[in-house]
């Protein structure tokens, strides 16, 4: 067997994966061929060197970072289901209401919501919300330490802002479904204006930290949708009855 063929088998041989005759062939060659012996010796040295590389200890800040991100992600989660549902409802229902332009517009809207939601999967930007307000002097609000057991009051309190936000999200979602209906009756430029404003409000929600600021942003969206749906403010602004 050529040196080339032998060297191809070296890795398997050194790793103890060549059984019986194959192993014996390689062993036999190595006894006689200095070049291959050197190669085998080098590869073994390399393998052993790799195996005995010292473990790399992570910095202690790693665990803290993981916990902070988990907390942030959990908080961010709470409102996500509302959006999933909103998407589900918004997307398939659109064709029921009108054909043509509305469907296209609705598709754009759906696309828009989806791209807006995507960054949430990377909890990075939401990191700030894991850190509670500045610690008060007499009895500091606890930093997000190890996650409390589920069902415990601390866990419930920590989850509460997100739960409330979700309730606002649910309400907005219902209005969004209604908005799909009336939107079809508007002129194209009104639809564009509506989409643009929606996008703006959505951005506000995304940027607002979880808790009261984000709830406030949701309420603004709800008010806007009510204005559009109940009071026909958009249609009226465009001079359409």
């Amino acid at each position: 067997m050529s040196c080339e063929r032998i060297q191809e088998k070296l890795t398997a041989y050194l790793d103890g994966e060549l059984a019986g005759q194959d192993g014996s062939v390689v062993r036999g060659h190595l006894r006689e061929c200095a070049t291959c012996r050197q190669a085998a010796s080098d590869e073994a040295a390399l393998r052993d060197g790799l195996r005995s590389l010292p473990p790399v200890d992570p910095p202690p800040s790693l665990w803290a970072g993981v916990q902070a991100q988990l907390a942030a992600a959990e908080v961010a989660d709470a409102k996500r289901p509302a959006w999933r549902r909103a998407l589900a409802r918004w997307a398939p229902s659109a064709p029921r209401f009108a054909a043509g332009a509305l469907v296209a517009a609705a598709a754009i809207a759906v696309l828009w919501w989806r791209t807006q939601r995507a960054p949430d999967d990377a909890p990075g930007p939401d990191r700030a919300i894991a850190t509670p307000a500045p610690a008060p002097a007499p009895a500091p609000v606890p930093e997000p330490g190890p996650p409390p057991p589920r069902g415990d009051i601390t866990a419930e309190l920590a989850a509460e802002p997100a739960r409330q936000t979700e309730a606002y999200g649910d309400a907005a979602e219902e209005l969004l479904a209604l908005a799909t209906e009336v939107r079809g009756t508007w002129a194209a430029e009104q639809q564009t204006a509506f989409d643009a404003r929606l996008s703006e409000l959505r951005g506000q929600i995304d940027r607002a930290p979880e808790g009261r600021p984000r709830q406030k942003a949701w309420r603004e969206l709800i008010r806007y949708l009510q204005g559009a749906i109940v009071r026909d403010e958009i249609a009226l602004a465009g001079g359409v009855p």
Partner: peptide
């Protein structure tokens, strides 16, 4: 607020 408990005993809200 409610502090985290010292023990694993959970406290219902």
């Amino acid at each position: 607020t409610a502090d985290g408990g010292k023990e694993v005993k959970t406290l219902a809200r």
